[in-house]
Amino acid sequence: NKFNKEMRNAYWEILHLPNLNEEQKNAFIQSLYDDPSQSANLLAEAKKLNDAQA
């Protein structure tokens, strides 16, 4: 299933973003579980936030 793979990839990438705190990571990961079809968008948002907090 495409979403499972996308979701897993997004999950791991978000988990390893160095500039997000636990609360931010948890919020993105919760959103992933709530709507796996948004994995790519959530990952993009997480990366933007990560870069902004660098």
Rank of each mutant, 00 (worst) to 15 (best):
N41M: 13
A10P: 00
P18K: 11
E22V: 12
R8I: 08
I29N: 01
H16Y: 07
Q38F: 05
N21M: 11
L17G: 00
F3L: 12
K48E: 07
S39F: 15
M7E: 12
I29R: 10
N1P: 13
K47N: 05
E13A: 15
Y11D: 01
R8F: 13
L17W: 02
Q38W: 08
S39W: 15
N26L: 08
L42F: 14
D35T: 09
I14Y: 00
A44D: 06
K25Y: 06
I14R: 00
N4W: 15
H16E: 02
R8N: 08
L32G: 01
N21S: 12
K25F: 13
I14G: 00
M7R: 01
D34A: 13
N50E: 04
I29A: 08
Y33D: 01
D35M: 10
L15E: 02
S31N: 07
L42I: 10
H16Q: 06
L20I: 11
F3K: 13
K47Q: 05
A52G: 14
S31K: 13
E23A: 10
K5D: 09
A54G: 06
A44M: 14
D35A: 12
D35Y: 10
K48V: 10
H16L: 05
N19H: 11
K2Q: 13
N41F: 14
N9T: 15
K48Y: 12
A44G: 09
L49D: 07
F3N: 13
L49H: 05
Q53H: 07
S39M: 13
N41P: 15
N21I: 10
Y11L: 13
N4D: 15
F28G: 01
L42A: 05
Q24S: 09
N9Q: 14
F28R: 02
E45Q: 14
Y11W: 10
L32W: 03
R8A: 12
E23W: 13
D34W: 09
I14L: 07
P36H: 03
F28Y: 08
N26Q: 08
E23M: 10
D34H: 14
K25V: 09
I29F: 13
Y11E: 04
K48A: 06
Y11A: 08
Q53W: 11
E23D: 07
L42E: 03
L49E: 07
E23H: 11
Q24E: 06
S37V: 08
K2E: 15
K25P: 00
I29H: 04
A52T: 10
L42V: 09
L32V: 05
Y33V: 04
A46E: 00
N26P: 02
R8G: 03
F28Q: 01
L20K: 00
A54K: 02
N1Q: 04
A52R: 12
N9F: 15
P36Q: 06
K2W: 15
N4K: 02
N26D: 06
H16M: 07
N4Q: 05
Q38G: 07
L20Q: 00
D34S: 13
N21R: 06
F28N: 01
L49N: 04
I29T: 03
A54E: 06
K2F: 12
K25S: 05
E6T: 05
K47D: 02
H16R: 14
E13G: 15
E13M: 15
K2P: 07
Q30G: 06
A10M: 03
A54N: 12
N21D: 10
Y11Q: 06
E45I: 14
L15T: 05
S37A: 09
N50L: 01
D35N: 09
W12F: 09
D51L: 13
E6K: 04
K25I: 06
K47A: 03
D51H: 09
D51S: 13
A27K: 10
L17S: 03
A40E: 07
Q24I: 03
N41T: 09
W12L: 01
Q30L: 14
Q53I: 11
L32Y: 00
A40N: 10
I29S: 11
F3W: 03
E6I: 08
E45Y: 15
S37Y: 07
L42G: 02
E23I: 10
N4T: 05
K47E: 04
Q38S: 07
D35Q: 10
P36D: 01
Q24W: 08
E45R: 15
A27G: 06
A40M: 13
D35P: 01
S31Y: 11
D51P: 04
F3Y: 07
N26V: 12
S39D: 01
L32A: 01
N1D: 12
Q38P: 02
H16S: 09
D35K: 14
A54Q: 12
K2M: 09
A52F: 09
N41E: 05
W12A: 02
D34I: 13
Q38A: 07
L49I: 05
K2H: 11
N21Q: 11
P18M: 11
I14P: 00
N50G: 03
L43R: 13
K2Y: 05
Q30Y: 15
M7N: 01
Q30E: 06
L15W: 11
N19I: 06
K25L: 10
N1K: 07
L49R: 08
D34G: 12
M7T: 06
K47V: 04
N26H: 12
K5I: 02
D34M: 14
N1V: 05
K2T: 05
E22K: 12
E45D: 07
L49G: 05
E6R: 05
D34K: 14
A40I: 12
S37H: 06
N19W: 12
N9W: 15
E6N: 04
L15K: 15
A27V: 11
K48D: 10
L42K: 10
A54L: 08
L32D: 00
N9H: 15
K47M: 05
A54D: 09
L20E: 00
P36F: 04
Q30F: 15
D34Q: 14
A54F: 08
N4F: 12
D34N: 12
N9A: 15
N50S: 08
A44V: 08
I29D: 00
Y11I: 14
N1A: 02
S37M: 09
N50V: 03
E22R: 15
L15M: 07
E23G: 09
Q38M: 12
N41G: 10
K5P: 05
L32S: 01
L32I: 04
F28E: 00
S39Y: 13
K5Y: 03
E13S: 15
S37K: 10
A10Q: 01
E6L: 12
P36G: 11
K2D: 15
N1S: 03
L15F: 13
Q24V: 05
W12T: 04
A10W: 02
P36Y: 03
N4P: 13
R8E: 14
L43I: 04
E6M: 08
L49F: 14
D35H: 13
N26T: 08
N9L: 14
I14N: 00
P36N: 06
K25R: 13
Y33H: 03
A54R: 02
H16V: 03
L20T: 00
L15H: 05
N19L: 05
N4G: 07
F28K: 04
I14E: 00
M7D: 02
S39A: 11
N21P: 05
I14D: 00
F3R: 08
N50Y: 02
N1T: 04
L49T: 09
M7Q: 14
M7F: 13
A46V: 03
K25N: 02
Q53N: 11
Q38Y: 08
P18S: 07
P36K: 04
L15G: 02
